[in-house]
């Protein structure tokens, strides 16, 4: 399990973040004291850190700069300082992302997982083995027994999300929310069309029964 270190001086926020990250498949830890922050970070050896800027002792930007001198560890700056200059400074000091409070937790989660994916795999192209089929994200295709079918951008996003929540009912709103998050601002009708097409493509691979409609509730990938 990947370890995320929370460097944040607000106790309550830090605790809630810890709970949330632990619930979402990460091992979260947080610093309680800030008198030796840089050394503490190095000792804990996290896979990623969430770093506040306003901290007692050394401030976040300084910490970021110092960490970068010795490590390529992914850093997401989480701060209430909402201006371009601080953002630029943080990025220049080597932060990978700059997120302002109050942050959208789903976006933060997406940023964490993409950063970790990049650092652990080294690349962005990947294949997901879903047992019955293989989802090839880099080629935007779905494969089964030498058969390969191309998917559109939206279709692959929908399938990916259903796959992440496999065996759970996913509501239409949730799928739309997920798509909007990644800048596909589709409406209700488009979603229906996309789902129908996706189902047809699954049928071509004889996998029609995998995607089920739960009337009034949403969809489920079995």
């Amino acid at each position: 399990m990947q370890k995320i270190l929370i460097v944040e001086d607000d106790e309550k926020l830090r605790d809630e973040l810890e709970i949330f990250l632990n619930n979402n498949g990460y091992k979260a830890e947080s610093l309680k004291k800030f008198n030796n922050t840089i050394q503490d970070i190095i000792d804990i050896k996290p896979d990623l850190i969430l770093l506040d800027i306003n901290l007692p002792g050394a401030d976040g930007q300084y910490i970021c700069k110092e960490i970068r001198k010795i490590s390529q560890l992914p850093i997401i700056v989480v701060t209430s300082r909402d201006n371009d200059i601080d953002e630029l400074l943080s990025i220049n000091y080597g932060a990978d992302h700059y997120v302002t409070k109050p942050f959208n937790i789903q976006i933060l989660l997406a940023k964490i997982s993409s950063l970790l994916r990049r650092t652990t795999l080294g690349t962005n192209n990947e294949k997901i083995d879903a047992k019955e089929f293989i989802l090839n994200i880099s080629k935007s295709t779905i494969e089964r027994e030498n058969k390969e079918i191309e998917l559109t951008k939206n279709e692959i996003k929908i399938l990916l999300h259903l796959l992440e929540r496999r065996n759970n009912i996913v509501s239409r709103e949730e799928i739309m929310d997920y798509l909007w998050e990644s800048n596909s601002f589709i409406d209700d009708n488009t979603l229906t069309v996309n789902i129908t097409r996706l189902r047809n493509k699954l049928q071509e691979l004889d996998l029609k029964e995998l995607l089920e409609t739960k009337r009034g509730q949403g969809y489920i990938l079995k």
Partner: peptide, 18 residues
């Protein structure tokens, strides 16, 4: 003041999320 209040808002949102 605005920077200060963003943290409690973020915290409240986290509590809601949990």
């Amino acid at each position: 003041w605005i920077h200060e209040i963003k943290t409690p808002i973020a915290t409240s949102k986290m509590i809601i999320e949990n």
